[in-house]
Amino acid sequence: MRKYILLLLVGSVAFAALFAYLGYREFTGKATLSETVVYVLPKGQGVGKTAFDLSERGIISNAGIFRLGVRLLGMDKSFKAGEYEIASGSSMRDIMELFASGEIIRHHLTIVEGWTSHQIVTYLNSVENLTGALTTLPTEGSIMPETYQYLRDDDRAALVQRMQARQEEFLLDEWSLRDPELPLETPEEALILASIVEKETSLEEERARIAGVFINRLRKNMRLQTDPTVIYGLNKTGDLGRPLSKKDLRTHTYYNTYVIRGLPPTPIAHPGKASIRAVLHPLPTDELYFVANGDGGHSFAGSNEEHNKNVLKLRKLEKERKLNTD
C-alpha cells in the first residue's frame, strides 16, 4: 500500500512539474501574434479581466496561464493604465513586462505657424484620441506653433494651456533680449507685429527684412498697409475664400491697416519662434515697401516710386501667366 502511495505522490509531482514546465514555456515562449497591435489598458482593470480580454482578441493563447504567471511573479499590482503597442511575436511575459513598464504610446500633433485660433480649435477637435471638446477660442496669438507630444485621452483644454505656457515663456524670454529702441512698448505689441510678419511670408530669409520694413513704417507713423490684417478684420478665421477687393481695402475695421495707423488691437494669427525673433531683431534697412515678386518671395523698395515699378512688374508677370494658361 505504501508503495502505491509513493508512486502516486511521485506521479503527482511529476505531473505538476510537467504542467508547470509546459505552462512556463507557453508563458515565456514566442506568441502566435502575427502583427503589431494597439491595446488600451483601462484604469482600474484587474489582471483577470485583462487576461480574458487579451485572450478574446487573440493576443495571448491562454488567459489562465497569463493570469497565473502574472500573479506568481508578483506583477498583478504593477500594471499601469494606458495605450500600448504590443509587437508581433510578444510572449505573455513580454506583455506583462510591457504593462508594468508604463511605456505607453506617445502621440504627436503639429500646430502650424500662422494658424488662427479658429483653425487650431477646428483641428484639435478633429483629433479623435483627445477628450473634452473645445467650445471657446483661445486668445489669438497665445499659442506656440510647434509639434506637441500627448497621450491618448488627454484633455484638449489642458493641451491648449500647455501650448499657451510655451508661447508666453518664449515671448518673455525673447522680449528681454530685444534690440534697443524698437517702437514697441510691450511684449503683446511684439506678438501682434510677429503675427503680421508670419502671415506675410513663409520664407525664413525674408522674415527679419519684412519686420524691418514694418518697424520703419511704425517709426514714421505710416500705415502698415498689410493685406492679412484686412482679411482678419473681415473674417476671424483668416480666410475670405476669395481675393481681396479694392472695397475691402477701404472697409473700416479695427484691423484694417490701410485705414488705421499703428498696430491692430490683437494678433491676427499665432506666430512661431522665427517671426517673433524677426520682430525683436529686425534687419536694419531703409526700405519702406514690399510686394510679391511672383515667385514666392517679395521685391523690396525704399521709395514709393521704386515700389510702384515693382508692382508693375508683378502685374505684367501675372498677365503673362494668365495668357499662357488660357
Rank of each mutant, 00 (worst) to 15 (best):
K3R: 15
G102Y: 04
Y123L: 08
E174Q: 15
S142P: 02
T136N: 07
R178Q: 09
E320R: 11
P228T: 13
L33Q: 05
G89S: 08
S303E: 02
A158Y: 01
R209K: 15
H118P: 00
M96W: 00
P187I: 09
A211S: 09
F15S: 12
P187N: 05
D248S: 07
I111P: 02
G114C: 12
K199F: 00
V259K: 12
G141Q: 05
L184N: 02
N304D: 04
S55M: 14
Y24V: 14
D239G: 01
K49D: 08
R152Q: 11
I59Q: 03
E174C: 09
D326E: 14
G294C: 07
T135V: 15
N129R: 10
W115P: 08
L130V: 13
P187S: 05
A20P: 06
N324G: 15
L172I: 01
F15V: 15
K199P: 02
K319G: 04
L6C: 10
R223G: 02
Y84A: 10
T32L: 14
P243I: 15
G46R: 10
G82Q: 05
A16H: 02
V13A: 15
N308L: 14
G262E: 06
A20D: 06
F290R: 08
H270P: 02
L288D: 03
L283G: 00
N62E: 11
S303Q: 07
F214K: 06
A269L: 08
F66K: 12
S142Y: 04
I65W: 03
G46F: 10
I210P: 05
V259H: 04
P282H: 00
I268K: 03
R67M: 14
F170Y: 13
E140I: 11
I276H: 01
L8W: 02
A278Y: 01
N310W: 00
N308H: 02
L171S: 01
Q119M: 13
S142W: 05
V47M: 09
K3L: 15
H107T: 05
V70R: 04
K313Q: 13
D286M: 08
Y39W: 05
G114Q: 06
A51P: 00
G46Q: 07
F79A: 09
V10H: 02
E204R: 15
R67G: 08
R315F: 05
P265V: 12
A87S: 09
F99A: 12
A274D: 07
P187V: 07
I143H: 01
V160D: 03
T139A: 13
I95N: 06
E146F: 01
R261G: 08
Y4I: 15
F290K: 06
T266C: 10
A292L: 12
L109K: 03
S126N: 10
V37C: 06
V70F: 03
G114V: 13
L6D: 00
K246H: 04
N256I: 12
V160H: 02
T325R: 14
T229K: 07
V160T: 09
E168T: 12
V291I: 15
G44W: 03
G48W: 05
I260N: 06
S88M: 05
G69E: 05
P265I: 12
L182K: 06
K49T: 10
V230R: 05
S78N: 11
D153G: 02
S245K: 10
S61M: 09
H307N: 08
R209A: 13
N235R: 13
Y232N: 06
L171F: 03
K77G: 05
A278Q: 04
R106I: 15
R93H: 02
R93Q: 12
